[in-house]
Amino acid sequence: MLKIYNDGGRITAAITGDIDHHAARELRSALDEIIFSSRPDTLILDLEGVGFMDSSGVGLVLGRMKAVKAYGGRLILKNVGSDTAEVLRLSGLSRLIAENRTAAKN
């Protein structure tokens, strides 16, 4: 599931649920619709509501990062849980994490 908060140049997309191969397809088309219609300077993916993410989520994040970069925008990740952070670390995507959920709590 996806909730969008738009304040002009910055768009936050709050994702809830598991990001797996099954969910990735729908998330991808929903996010691409926002990217191509609004072309935000910064797209923030808020993963607060994401309890699980696997390599399909990595593909989703990478794909959106490329789409945003293509017109000079940037993508950042917010509220990333520790297990998701580990998957992102293995994928070399840790640099996209702006604020870490677990770091803030501890």
Binding site: D54, S55, S56, L60, L62, E86
Partner: peptide, 14 residues
Amino acid sequence: EEEHSGLGFTIMES
């Protein structure tokens, strides 16, 4: 176009 990262086995291994 399916945007697979090719990291499934790497993640399993880890």
